[in-house]
Amino acid sequence: MSSVHFDQVYKRYENGHEAMRHVTFQVNRGEFVFITGHSGAGKSTLLKLIMLMERPTRGQIFVDGKNLKSIGSRAMPYFRRSIGVVFQDHQLIPDRTVFDNIALPLIISGYPDKDIGRRVRAALDKVGLLKKENYYPIALSGGEQQRVGIARAVINKPTLLLADEPTGNLDPELSNEIMELFMRFNRAGVTVLIASHDRSLVQALNYRTLQLEHGSLIEEEVVA
């Protein structure tokens, strides 16, 4: 049973840029997969297609066996709640505390207050920020902000976790910490898809890698 399945996906933006050229691949449930390539190779587009920020021009995408074509704008919010996404620029709300930022998906889903408190603190504990729940994002370092983003991404207990350059601006040591977090979620059964241009980091971790170039899948490495 595949978790993510791209079938001949072609994406052409309105400005004529071909971001994705007939990409076909499959990621199985519980897998940990890197997507690499130069900037502009289509990594972000690939993730955006999965979380319905973009729609493919041609081809089909399945997530947990469900064809994304069948998800209309009305059902889209509910679909997005089922996947966790970590953004390169964190996408935190500056005038809300760390706690409120992480709680947002739960508030959106309508959880009772006591459940929210319990789950947010559990998530904060997992990313090691338990003492900073009342801080505002601006008071945190880049690595800490990224960890808040990760806590928010996993708060709804998604089965699929997407991350776009999660170590983008971090030094190697912090990068390793962040990767360690993703690996821990993966061991708990979460399918993880990480877009990264950091070849050394990717190679060091020995996971399956999909390499994109100019929107085409040029290489699929499966490291034993």
Partner: peptide, 16 residues
């Protein structure tokens, strides 16, 4: 604006 975008990203409905 930021709050609205983030909300939409993490699955907020139009009514939310």
């Amino acid at each position: 604006r930021r709050e609205i975008i983030v909300g939409k990203l993490v699955g907020a409905t139009h009514s939310f």
